[in-house]
Each structure stands twice: as C-alpha cells, then as structure tokens.
C-alpha cells in the first residue's frame, strides 16, 4: 500500500481495525481524541462497535465484558483517564482477559496538562491498579512502529490472556509521519474456549471472574500467572540499540524521547564523543539483559525521560552498580531538546 501521512492516534485506530479489533469503548480526553473519532467513523462501516461510554470506568468495564465474551477489544485514554480505568485493568488482569489499552500520556499528576509526558511509566509497568499483576507495555517511537506494536499488542494479549498497554505520549499521538500498512496483516487470532458466548447446552458453563475467597486457591492462581510472566520476560523482550559497541556513554530512552536522544547522539558523535543508545520497545518485560551487558562495557548510562525519573529505577536494577546511571529529564509537558541532552552528556564526561 502507498505511503500516507497519518497521525499516531489515527494509525493506532487503523492498525487495530486491521488487526480485527471490531469493538472499541472509550471516553473523550485530550490528547488521544482522534482515536475515538477514527473509530466512530470506521466501526459502523465494518459492522463493529464504537461506543462513547459515560465514563472511563464504564468504558474499561465494557472492555472487560467484551473481552470475556471473546472478541478483540480496545480502549484508549490519556493519563487521568487511565487512573480511572485502573480498577477495571486490575479486574481484567485478575480474570485473565485479553485486551489492548492505549495511554497517550500527558503531564501529571492530577489534571496536570495536555502536553506530552512519560510520567505514567510507574503506573504502566508497576501496576496502577491493585494486586499482583503485570501488563505487557509497548512503547513505539515512530508512527510506523505504532502499526507493528498495535498488531503485536492484540496477538500478545490473546496469546497470554492478559491486558497489553501501548504507552505513547501527546507528541506521538499528534504527529504525522509517512506510513504504509502491510497488505496482509500477520495476526494470530486464536480460539477462546473460555469465553462466555453461551453454553448452547453443549458444554459446562464458562465463568469470567477474579474473586477467590479461599486464600490458597487465590495464591495458586497468582503464582501460576507469575509463571506466565516469567515466560514473557524470557521470550517477549524487545529493544533496539545504536552505536553501543564503542560507546563511553549510553543513553537509554523510549518512545518519542528516544528520537530526541538519537538526535543528541548524532550531535555528540559529530563532536567525537562516543555515545550510544538503548531504546526499550517493551517497557515490561524490561530489556534487563542488554542493560546489564552494556553497563559492564560503558563508562556511564543516562536515562532520558519526560518525567522526574521513573525508568531510571529499572535501569539501575539491571545495571546493578556496573556503571553509574545518570538522569536527564523534563516533565509537566516540557520536551527535552537534543542540545539539552548533549549538555548533560558533556556534564557527565
């Protein structure tokens, strides 16, 4: 297919539809509203469901119902809305339901602002809702990558029966870049014999539930779920590296910030400073091994984030003291400029 210019938000919506997601439940919030608008326009034409729910809470619970009923389903929001959805996300994790959740992050806490941020990293990767659970978290850094991540998100959700989050930010949601959609989407829809589609009087009833009053029963279930998480950590880690082999200083950045870090790296290299970049694509599972390996070879790592420093904690754990881990970030909707990052590089040298 020809290349077209598309906003990140629209690309997410189109990619979801192409991944056979026919059900979308959402609530308006800046800066992700184009996703809802796109779905509202397209879903009726393909016999799908678009619903503007009465609240974020209702939307995520509609996702729960539809996911339990066995269909591919998605919701999208931005930071304050994701906080509201946290209850439902926990229930979805607890009931082992597959779904895709989009967070186009804006500055926080509270109502915060509407400009791009990455300050929901903790919420996305460490929980947000209550209980022992994980989300697979994907962080695309270009509009083209959004297409791959969105398809992948539905496949991972189905494969592991768990919620998958795409963590973007206001910048990637709003910007346009040339993209092309593959003519045939390589997506793997699988049978869902556990779904509540009606017994048709031919099988025992299916129950979608996260309530287990007997603590031993609950513990066994959570432990089994964590075995699944272990497998995901072994097999589903995704990242990219650039120039790390000879690097003295390695930047670690994800999403749109990784692009800015790339620009800073080019500026540094032009000045003869050996800078490399590690770009996590999966934030959970976090690319621990490459961080650990690289930390042994470089002089310093710098976590570059649009937050006060959240991913840096995972980098430090992975580096395990093998090299110092510094931080450069802007927050509240401010976006770091490449020159600012270059200054930080020079400061730590």
């Amino acid at each position: 297919m020809d290349k077209v210019l598309m906003k990140g938000n629209e690309a997410i919506a189109e990619a979801a539809i192409r991944a056979n997601c026919k059900h979308f439940f959402g609530y308006p919030i800046t800066p992700q509203s184009e996703i809802s608008a796109y779905m509202a326009k397209k879903m009726p034409k393909i016999g799908g469901t678009f619903m503007q729910a009465e609240s974020e809470v209702a939307a995520i619970n509609m996702v729960y119902g539809a996911a339990g009923a066995g269909v591919r389903v998605m919701t999208s929001s931005s930071s304050p809305g994701i906080s509201l959805k946290a209850e439902g996300i926990s229930y979805i994790a607890g009931a082992d339901l597959p779904c895709v959740i989009i967070n186009i992050v804006r500055g926080g806490p509270g109502l915060g602002g509407i400009q791009p941020a990455q300050s929901d990293y903790f919420q996305a990767t460490k929980g947000g809702g209550h209980g022992d659970y994980r989300l697979i978290v994907l962080a695309p850094s270009s509009i083209q990558e959004i297409v791959d991540c969105t398809t992948n998100a539905f496949d991972l959700a189905d494969k592991y029966r768990m919620p998958v989050m795409i963590l973007g930010d206001g910048m990637i949601g709003q910007m346009m870049e040339p993209i092309s959609f593959p003519d045939n989407v390589d997506t793997k829809e699988i049978e869902k014999p556990w779904a509540t589609t009606g017994t048709q009087m031919k099988r025992k009833k299916n129950v979608v539930n996260s309530l287990y009053i007997d603590p031993k029963e609950l513990e066994d279930l959570v432990v089994a779920r964590y075995k699944k998480y272990d497998e995901i950590e072994k097999t589903e880690v995704k990242f990219e590296t650039e120039n790390i082999d000879d690097a003295d200083i390695v930047l670690v950045a994800y999403g749109t910030t990784a692009r800015i870090a790339t620009a800073a790296m080019r500026m540094a290299r032009a000045e003869g400073i050996k800078v490399g970049l590690i770009r996590p694509i999966t934030l959970w599972p976090f690319p621990k091994d490459i961080i650990a390996e690289t930390a042994k070879k470089c002089k310093c790592m710098i976590s570059v984030e649009m937050s006060m420093g959240q991913m840096i904690e995972d980098i430090k754990i992975a580096a395990n003291g093998a090299c110092p881990v510094e931080f450069y970030g802007r927050t509240g909707g401010m976006v770091p400029a490449p020159a600012e990052i270059l200054n930080k590089i020079k400061e730590v040298m």
């Binding site: 059900h23 809470v57 209702a58 729960y64 119902g65």
Partner: peptide
C-alpha cells in the same frame, strides 16, 4: 455462562458482552 463484575459495573460489563 457468567461474568463477575466490579462493584457497580455490571451494566457496563453487560453492555460489553451484548455488543
């Protein structure tokens, strides 16, 4: 077949199932 909803959310869950 049954689904267990969060407190107060049964009509939203039912909406998802029905849709």
């Amino acid at each position: 077949d049954m689904q267990e909803a969060a407190h107060g959310r049964a009509p939203a869950v039912a909406t998802g199932i029905k849709r």
